[in-house]
Design a protein around this nucleic acid. Structure first.
Lengths: 212, 212
DNA sequence: ACCTGAACACCGTTCAAGT
DNA sequence: ACCTGAACACCGTTCAAGT
């Protein structure tokens, strides 16, 4: 029994599954061919080469990203909600951010969120260059945070362990020494979601205050 | 004329040069051997394998990172100065952040800056969990921004180009339509240094206000 | 139009053999 | 203790040959 003829979409689907699961470096042409039950060289006929295969993959994923609807009563809340939605979207495609950036598609990927942000920032009274800066700041903040968070997840065992560092060192600052709660909080594992919300809220608060 | 005997440090130095210039993926054992004028297998005797070579490299670089001295009159200014110093340090080692994260050495790398931040945040009146959160927020902010900035640099040609996107689309929000300055600012190329300073200042302002 | 295997130039790594 | 070349199992990619 012979397999049905290979299509470009089939190749992309299989590649997407591999990348989604284990990242782009896990996508080998030979592995993909095995997955598809075809000769390696067939893939080349459909997608060119590995690089353009990844290009196509990224393009397709970016195009499929959903809308972003701001929620909340105040501009502050609404901007924060856009940031959170953006984070959730990016986390759903763990390898997307890096791949998109490498291909120079960041701006395109961000357009929907950017427009939502522009709207809210405008509603908060910011204008001109100041408004643009606020939008950019939030954009950098979200992507940056997601990148850091992802990197942390890939390195689950923080080897020296922040806890030990704060316990060991006698260079621990006086500040931390006479603030047990602070020392304890710094020794505790990081909750990225919490850090994210705190940071975004703080950032947005300051940025929007400038408009009032 | 035979070469002087190979040393571990020689290997690390050559590897560091390669990584610094073109990133870890450009470091091949064979290329390194060629650079050193030895057989590939000699390197294995000195450093084990590629992975432990990179480990050693990262460890050495992290250990060599300099001090961080806060500058400025107010806690605000001093925290911002730490963030800027941190950014400068990371930018001097373009591939370090990612490599450090992958190896779970982030906390160790950040310890000096973290202690400086703790001190300043404490001086600003923050205590306990709140102080820890502020420190974490700044830390994530800086690393995140540097990661985004690095990614941008690696992708110099933003293909659809943000400018065109804002020019083309008739989905451009009303906000942008009646604010020419905003549209122009969003169409202009991003100045990452400026975004960084704006963001950090805004973030720190909010975070430290909580302590007063 | 679509698929195939053979072949090429690259990897990292192991190993037995040299000095 | 240190270095070596040969060999193995992987890559991505090209190409001539099939249907």
């Amino acid at each position: 029994m012979t397999r049905s003829p290979l299509t470009r979409d089939e190749v992309l689907d299989a590649a997407a599954a591999l990348v989604r699961q284990s990242g782009p470096q896990a996508l080998t042409m030979r592995g993909l061919a095995a997955e598809l039950g075809t000769a390696v060289t067939s893939i080349y006929w459909h997608v060119g080469n590995r690089e353009s295969l990844l290009d196509a993959l990224v393009e397709r994923t970016v195009a499929d990203l959903g809308e972003i609807r701001p929620r909340g009563g105040t501009p502050q809340e609404r901007v924060v909600s856009v940031a959170r939605a953006l984070r959730r979207l990016l986390r759903a495609h763990p390898h997307l951010v890096a791949m998109v950036h490498e291909r120079g598609l960041t701006e395109r990927m961000f357009l929907p969120a950017q427009q939502a942000l522009v709207h809210e920032v405008h509603a908060a009274g910011l204008r001109g260059a100041r408004a643009a800066e606020a939008v950019r700041a939030v954009q950098f903040q979200v992507v940056g945070h997601v990148l850091v968070e992802r990197n942390r997840e890939r390195a689950p065992v923080q080897r020296p362990g922040e806890e030990d560092l704060w316990a060991e060192t006698d260079t621990a600052t006086a500040a931390a020494e006479d603030d047990r709660a602070l020392a304890r909080a710094l020794a505790a594992p990081v909750d990225p979601e919490r850090v994210f919300t705190t940071s975004v809220r703080a950032l947005v608060k300051s940025l929007l205050e400038a408009g009032t």
